[in-house]
């Protein structure tokens, strides 16, 4: 059954690639609409260029740093808000603002406040923080009332409540939040690089590829950053799952 699904997905991708190739032949303007074969050639040449890895490193480490700061801040604030409703009320206007203001507006505003070098990190923090905060808060609020009563009866201190009562309640929320937050951190981080013209980053490469009508290069860099984002999300989620399993064995 699983193999059948996988085969189906492979076939769907193959059909999509064929349609893309056909569309590129029909449009017949490579600088505007590159064919998959051109993108593949560009990708291979990028792989062979040592500078590519430096560009990817500069983009990824800044975005991942922002993701991790957003995760830690969001988790800490979510726990505090779950424990003390006054904190939730106090944070409400900030969280609503961060959640509802368009990313592009934030990037432009942030350009005034922070150096271009830290722009993608800053934007990643802003995007990740409310997602993690809301999910942690939802998990804590959704914790079984009877388990909380049990914790009260046995006078469990905060650390043990975190581990035994809140962690199991928060786990599914956090895993799903990490899944969406990681992807959004990369998307918004690269958007910040494009708008802020961060030096030597994927965003800058995409910007110049667009300026020079190098659509094959534009697609190739986009594919590279999508792959990096998916890889990071997989590795981080697996690490998180492993950490939860380790804590449950304590």
């Amino acid at each position: 059954m699983k193999n059948k699904r996988l085969l189906g997905k492979v076939a769907a991708v193959a059909v999509a690639l064929l349609l893309w190739q056909a569309a590129a032949i029909w449009v017949d303007m490579r600088y505007l609409f590159a064919a998959p074969s051109d993108v593949l050639k560009t990708l291979l040449s990028l792989f062979g260029d040592a500078g590519t890895w430096g560009v990817l490193w500069r983009s990824c480490h800044k975005i991942i740093l922002g993701f991790l700061i957003g995760l830690l801040l969001g988790a800490a604030l979510g726990i505090l808000a779950g424990r003390f409703s006054a904190v939730e009320i106090f944070l409400w206007p900030y969280m609503v603002t961060v959640k509802s203001v368009p990313v592009a507006s934030f990037i432009v505003i942030a350009l005034i406040w922070v150096k271009t070098a830290v722009l993608s990190t800053f934007i990643s923090v802003l995007i990740v923080l409310p997602i993690i905060y809301n999910n942690i808060l939802g998990g804590i609020r959704g914790a079984d009332r009877k388990m909380t009563e049990m914790a009260d009866v046995f006078s469990l201190p905060l650390g043990r409540r975190l581990l035994y009562i809140w962690m199991p309640a928060v786990k599914p929320f956090l895993l799903s939040a990490v899944h969406s937050a990681a992807g959004l951190a990369f998307k918004s981080g690269v958007a910040a690089e494009v708008i802020g013209l961060q030096n030597g980053t994927v965003g800058e490469m995409i910007h110049y590829a667009r300026l020079h009508f190098e659509s094959a290069e534009l697609f190739a860099w986009t594919i590279l950053i999508v792959v990096m984002s998916a890889l990071f999300e997989r590795v981080f989620s697996a690490t998180l799952r492993g950490s939860f399993a380790g804590l449950e064995r304590l």
């Binding site: 009877k146 388990m147 049990m150 046995f154 035994y164 199991p168 449950e248 064995r249 304590l250």
Partner: peptide, 16 residues
């Protein structure tokens, strides 16, 4: 029972 289902019997006892 109000037990922490993901944890072992030993952890449930040591928790308190």
């Amino acid at each position: 029972d109000r037990l922490c289902e993901d944890f072992s019997a030993l952890s449930n006892c040591r928790m308190v």
